[in-house]
Design a protein around this nucleic acid. Sequence first.
DNA 1: TTTGAAAACGATAATCGTTATCGTTTTTGT
DNA 2: ACAAAAACGATAACGATTATCGTTTTCAAA
Lengths: 127, 127
Amino acid sequence: MKHSHKRDAICEVLKSKRDHPTADMVYERVREKYPEISLATVYRNLAQLCTEGTIIKIGAAGRERYDIDTSDHTHFFCDECGEVYDVFSDLNFTGLAKAESEIGCKIDFAHITFRGHCKNCMAKAGN
Amino acid sequence: MKHSHKRDAICEVLKSKRDHPTADMVYERVREKYPEISLATVYRNLAQLCTEGTIIKIGAAGRERYDIDTSDHTHFFCDECGEVYDVFSDLNFTGLAKAESEIGCKIDFAHITFRGHCKNCMAKAGN
DNA sequence: TTTGAAAACGATAATCGTTATCGTTTTTGT
DNA sequence: ACAAAAACGATAACGATTATCGTTTTCAAA
């Protein structure tokens, strides 16, 4: 895909620190390279990158986050610190066909997110 | 739980038509009984009912919906018509422990939503 | 290398769902 | 009946995101 310089810089931000930043966080980071960039440009390019499939949006209650890893994986949201972690382990679940037949629908996606307490927060609480 | 008249009417709206309405939809419906009710009152009471555990919020990308069925169940969102359906079939999934050990976390909730095409929309498309 | 159209941009206004404020009204317990 | 607490309506404020618009940059064809 052909990208503008600023769009490239936004990709670079997503690639270099894979912590699922919000638009604001991307804005702050890309300003290190382009101090004059507008927040509108960040939103515009994030939207475009989503449309073309380069990145994905992982909605978390009124505050979108962005992930450059478009492979099939799950996200874990820490309820304590708000951090988001990738989970790549396979999750097989049974009952999907039964769910489909229950309401007579075709399930295209089963979207799973985890919530709980992350390693760091558990370590802190443990002491 | 002790409720005001208007809070009761809001519950009644949720009970009588279990289609996971948005706050706006609740507002429209409760106005049939209380034409003078304010949208603020609807939001206020929906929030309160969530807090006390009488109803649940099922967030769907920037637009909350409300469900008076607080039992453990899943929701199916039709990508075509936007309708939301309840799914009560059990879904067992394996790999949760592996996911926990992968990132060293404690998973408290696994939140699942389905997306796809509902019965009605498939029937329409089929002709 | 000029040129002109398309794409991208910055600034900022607008939008949308939701929440907060505040002065008034209703409910409740005594 | 009465005071305190809860609920209310109107509306302003909020925060995240999107739209607008006039300007600037890019890039390919001439």
